[in-house]
Amino acid sequence: MTAAAIQAQDFSKSQCAAGLRAALNILDKWKASCEQACHILRISRSTYTRASQKESAWEVSLDSDQMQRISLVLNIHAALRLVFDNPENVYGFPSMKNHNEFFNGRAPLDIMAQGDMISLYETFRRIDALRGAQW
């Protein structure tokens, strides 16, 4: 399923919470700050804080844009796991400065944290292209 095909109404509040927690767990392993994570996923600091707590009964409603952002984070993580064998690169790559076109010396995490969907999608597209050695 592509990120564009996701409709928020197709997900229950508990499914939204599970997706959000999975994305935040990945972002945490990428060493994203709270502010970066909030910009990437377009969530409030209070939602970030509540999702980061371990109470299992917590639920949240998310809109289709937020669910697409979660999907892109999960897909970036999946692409990195296919490209790299070691956890240091899987989790370290997003915070490493990248001198390829588009990144221009910036880290993928910094590009994603700009907060707009285009930056997040283009980061995914560039990382996904690594699977086919298209760089």
Rank of each mutant, 00 (worst) to 15 (best):
M1I: 06
M1W: 08
M1N: 09
T2V: 00
A3C: 09
A4Y: 11
A4T: 07
A5P: 00
I6V: 15
I6G: 04
A8T: 02
K13M: 03
S14T: 13
S14K: 12
Q15C: 08
A18Y: 07
A18W: 03
L20D: 09
L20F: 13
R21N: 01
A22L: 10
A23R: 04
I26P: 00
D28L: 04
K29Y: 10
W30I: 00
K31M: 05
K31F: 07
K31I: 06
A32E: 12
A32P: 12
S33R: 01
S33G: 00
C34A: 08
C34P: 03
E35N: 13
Q36V: 08
Q36M: 14
A37Q: 05
C38T: 14
H39G: 00
I40C: 02
L41D: 08
R42G: 03
I43H: 10
S44F: 05
S44W: 02
R45T: 13
T47W: 09
T47V: 15
T47K: 14
T47P: 02
T49M: 12
T49W: 13
T49F: 14
R50D: 10
R50G: 00
A51E: 08
A51H: 07
K54C: 09
E55A: 10
W58D: 08
W58A: 10
E59V: 15
V60L: 04
S61P: 02
L62T: 08
L62W: 13
S64D: 14
S64V: 01
D65Y: 03
Q66P: 13
Q66T: 09
M67H: 10
M67S: 06
M67Y: 07
Q68M: 12
R69H: 11
R69P: 14
S71R: 14
L72R: 14
L72C: 09
V73H: 02
L74D: 05
L74F: 04
N75D: 15
N75K: 15
H77M: 05
H77S: 14
A78R: 08
A78M: 05
A79S: 15
A79K: 07
A79Y: 06
L80F: 06
L80V: 07
V83R: 15
V83F: 03
F84P: 11
F84V: 08
F84Y: 12
F84N: 02
D85W: 04
N86A: 07
N86W: 00
P87K: 10
P87H: 05
V90D: 02
V90N: 13
Y91V: 03
G92Q: 04
G92K: 01
G92V: 03
S95D: 11
M96H: 06
N98I: 04
N98F: 08
R106W: 02
R106F: 00
A107I: 06
A107H: 13
L109A: 11
L109D: 04
L109K: 07
D110F: 02
D110N: 11
D110Y: 02
I111F: 05
M112E: 12
A113H: 11
A113R: 07
Q114T: 03
Q114C: 05
G115V: 06
D116F: 04
D116A: 06
M117N: 00
I118A: 05
I118S: 06
I118H: 01
S119T: 03
L120S: 03
L120C: 01
Y121W: 09
Y121G: 00
T123V: 11
T123L: 09
T123Y: 07
R126V: 10
R126F: 01
D128T: 01
D128N: 14
D128L: 08
R131N: 06
A133R: 14
Q134I: 14
W135S: 05
